[in-house]
Nucleic acid binder design. Structure first.
Length: 333
DNA sequence: ACTGACAC
DNA sequence: GTGTCAGTG
């Protein structure tokens, strides 16, 4: 998913405590929902569900994680994707095919009792459908947080809002916001501190990346960063076979970008993708207003409709000074 | 994602 | 305090 700039960014990422991330965080909603849906699962891969079989993992993630962030003085807003550009179609189709295959493999693994494989395939089959988006937006709104509908890519909108200064930083696991020009990106904000990897548990801390650190450090322009991304491959174009960031930056610095593309991918016109990263569709039509959470609304939605335990919901919100029977709070920041 | 219980 | 496990919906 997204452009793999990990190695290029490695020397410039800074581990940072939640407490130091005070301010407005523009969260790529699709990315966050995808994380919740893939992580919050039972050992055999079954996501959390209500009595009628509707997936609730994302609601659990939004509730507990954002409550946590808000207590630390972080004001999140969620940006949802709009219409993808036509040249993303290949990526969209590949993901569809990947999920379909994983679904088959998940059923087969379950049938022969291979729990570990079932878990892996269930995760790979995760899908963010319209019911998940709708229920997520509803809960976010009840929590009093802004929902922003991007005209196209959410990551582009997050970058735009960070550039404009309306938000402090973009939040995503992917590096695409950097290609879209976001001055600051925070990763690992919507995952917990601890993660199980191959049986071992590792600590995952939030990390902040400043675009200028990367550009000055690697002595490249943003245009060149985009060129590296295009050589390596993005959601909007297949990369050149055998080229990763190390080779990519070498080619770009030596001025071999266009020549390499002509040689390796003669049928690909990079200009629309370059222009998309430089001038993506974004909107100024958003209002950033944090309201008092509607506790009764949250309780009614989660406990009555989605079978959440009242105590858990209450506990998650108690840090925000909200309790059952207490409907309003004058100011909570 | 989080929680509670228990081990060390 | 930190680690692990089972459970949540």
């Amino acid at each position: 998913m997204g452009v793999d700039l990990r190695e290029l960014v490695l020397p410039y990422k800074k581990e940072i405590a939640l407490e130091e991330l005070r301010g407005i965080a523009a969260v790529d909603a699709f990315n966050a929902l995808f994380q919740f849906i893939t992580i919050i699962r039972q050992p055999d891969g079954t996501p959390l569900m209500d009595k009628t079989g509707r997936v609730t993992s994302h609601l659990s993630g939004i509730l507990f994680r954002t409550a946590n962030l808000m207590e630390k003085g972080i004001k999140p807003l969620f940006i949802f994707d709009g219409t993808p550009p036509p040249f993303k179609e290949e990526t969209v189709q590949m993901r569809r095919d990947g999920r379909a295959l994983a679904e088959t493999l998940h059923k087969e693994a379950l049938a022969r009792g291979d729990i570990e494989e079932a878990y892996k395939q269930a995760r790979a089959a995760s899908r963010i459908d319209s019911t998940i988006i709708a229920s997520a937006k509803r809960l976010i709104t009840l929590l009093g947080l802004p929902v922003v509908d991007a005209p196209s890519e959410g990551e582009a909108q997050a970058a735009y809002m960070t550039i404009s200064g309306d938000v402090g930083y973009a939040v995503s696991q992917d590096y695409d916001t950097l290609l879209f020009g976001s001055p600051a990106l925070v990763r690992n904000l919507t995952v917990s501190g601890k993660r199980k990897m191959h049986g071992r548990s590792i600590t995952v801390n939030p990390e902040k990346i400043f675009l200028d650190d990367l550009l000055f450090g690697q002595k490249i322009s943003r245009e060149e960063l985009i060129q590296i991304g295009i050589l390596v491959g993005t959601d909007f174009n297949r990369g050149c076979y055998g080229i990763g960031v190390k080779t990519g930056i070498k080619i770009v610095k030596e001025g071999g970008y266009e020549k390499t593309l002509k040689e390796k991918m003669p049928d690909f016109d990079p200009v629309p993708v370059e222009q998309f990263f430089l001038h993506p569709p974004v909107t100024k039509d958003y209002s950033l207003e944090w309201k008092t959470p509607d506790f009764e609304g949250i309780r009614a939605m989660l406990c009555e409709e989605y079978d959440f335990g009242e105590e858990r919901v209450n506990r998650a919100l108690s840090g925000l000074g909200l309790k059952i029977g207490q409907k309003t709070l004058d100011s909570w920041f």
